[in-house]
Amino acid sequence: MDGDTISRLAYLAIILVALGGWAMVEFRQRMGQALRMVAAWGLIFLAMMAGYGLWTDIRSDIMPTQMVSTTGAIEVPRAADGHYYLTLEVNGTPVVFMADTGATNMVLSRDDARRLGIEPDSLLYVGEASTANGVVRTARVELPLVELGPFRNESFPAWVNDAEMDGSLLGMDYLGQFRLEIDGDKMVLRQ
Rank of each mutant, 00 (worst) to 15 (best):
E119K: 03
F151Q: 01
K186F: 08
G32L: 12
A34Q: 03
A18D: 08
I14G: 13
L143A: 01
S155V: 08
A10M: 12
L19G: 14
Q66I: 03
M24C: 08
A47Y: 05
E119S: 12
D112I: 03
M165I: 11
V160H: 00
D57W: 08
P94L: 02
L123N: 05
M48K: 06
L180E: 07
A10N: 14
L86M: 06
S130I: 07
A13C: 05
R110I: 04
L35A: 14
R179V: 15
F151K: 01
T5I: 05
N161I: 02
F151P: 01
A103H: 02
R179H: 13
A113Q: 05
D173K: 03
D166V: 08
I6A: 13
G167C: 04
G21C: 05
D166Y: 05
E147M: 11
M172P: 08
S130Q: 14
F27M: 02
I118W: 00
M172W: 05
Q66F: 02
I6C: 09
S109I: 02
Y174F: 13
W22H: 09
A129D: 08
L35C: 05
G21E: 10
R114E: 14
I74C: 07
D111N: 15
L148C: 12
Y125D: 09
G32Y: 11
D112Q: 07
A103C: 05
V160I: 05
Q29F: 10
L116T: 14
D166P: 11
S69K: 02
I62P: 07
V95W: 00
Y52F: 11
E75T: 10
I62L: 12
L9K: 04
G21S: 12
W22R: 06
L54E: 08
V90H: 00
G42N: 11
A73N: 13
D100H: 02
P64G: 05
F27C: 06
L12A: 06
L12I: 05
I182D: 09
E142I: 06
F156R: 06
A79L: 01
A47G: 09
V96S: 10
V188S: 05
V160E: 01
R110H: 02
A23G: 00
P150L: 04
T65M: 06
L12H: 11
E164V: 13
Q66R: 01
I44R: 08
G92D: 05
S130R: 08
V76L: 04
A129F: 06
V76T: 15
V95S: 02
R30D: 15
R140P: 12
G134D: 08
